[in-house]
Computed example of a mutant assay.
Amino acid sequence: MKKKLSLILIILLIISIFYYKSIENKNKELHYAVEKYATSGFFNDYKLRRLDEWILEFSDGNICIVTIKGMEYKAPHDIITYKIFLEKNKKGIWKLKKYYK
């Protein structure tokens, strides 16, 4: 019984590592990172239900400012616009730094 349990735990650990690496690789693309940060996150106060458009305002390859527009997640679901500031880390992954209203 202990062998089966340890085997299951090892398999789950391997699957979670592969899942994390695949998400990390997707975040190297700016489009995916903007959509992910705009529409997901349990504690994200700026979360959108739907991302209608995004416009790249500035980018030098390491930092970028993007204007996003979409339907607000909270009722009454107004259309809202934010500017977000993203920065690329050493691994080339886009990380969200700040939202601007």
Rank of each mutant, 00 (worst) to 15 (best):
L5P: 00
T81C: 00
N89R: 09
L9M: 07
K101E: 15
I65G: 01
V66L: 05
D78M: 06
K2W: 11
I84T: 05
I10T: 15
I15R: 06
I55H: 03
I23W: 10
Y82A: 04
K88S: 06
S59K: 03
D78V: 04
I65Q: 09
E35T: 10
L12D: 10
K101V: 06
A33L: 09
K83G: 01
D60R: 05
K21L: 15
K69A: 02
E29N: 12
E24P: 02
I11P: 00
Y100N: 11
F42R: 14
K47R: 15
I10Y: 11
G92S: 14
N25E: 15
Y19R: 12
D60L: 02
E57F: 03
K90L: 14
I10S: 12
K74I: 03
K88Q: 12
R50Y: 14
Y100D: 08
L86Y: 03
L5F: 11
M1I: 12
V34W: 10
G41I: 03
E53W: 12
L56I: 09
G61C: 13
C64H: 00
M1F: 14
L51V: 06
S16Y: 08
T67F: 04
K26Q: 13
Y100S: 08
I84F: 04
F42C: 04
E53V: 10
E29W: 07
L56M: 08
K74G: 00
K69Y: 02
A75R: 10
I68Q: 03
K28E: 12
V66M: 05
D45H: 12
L13P: 01
I10C: 06
E72W: 04
L5M: 07
K95T: 06
D45V: 03
I15W: 08
I17E: 14
K26D: 11
R49I: 00
V66Q: 09
I15T: 09
K83L: 02
R49G: 09
K101G: 06
K101Q: 09
L48H: 09
E57D: 13
L12E: 12
F42M: 08
W94H: 06
I65M: 07
S59P: 02
P76S: 01
E35K: 14
G92Q: 07
A75M: 05
L51E: 08
W94K: 07
Y37C: 07
L9A: 10
L48P: 02
S22C: 07
S40Q: 10
E72P: 00
K21W: 12
Y32K: 06
K88F: 08
N27K: 15
V34H: 13
T39S: 06
I14K: 07
K69N: 14
K97H: 04
W94I: 03
F58E: 15
I65K: 15
P76Q: 03
F42S: 10
L96G: 01
K95D: 11
K90W: 08
E57K: 13
Y100Q: 09
I63P: 01
K98L: 05
T67K: 15
D78R: 10
I11C: 09
T67C: 02
Y73M: 05
F85D: 01
P76F: 01
L51H: 04
Y99A: 02
S6E: 12
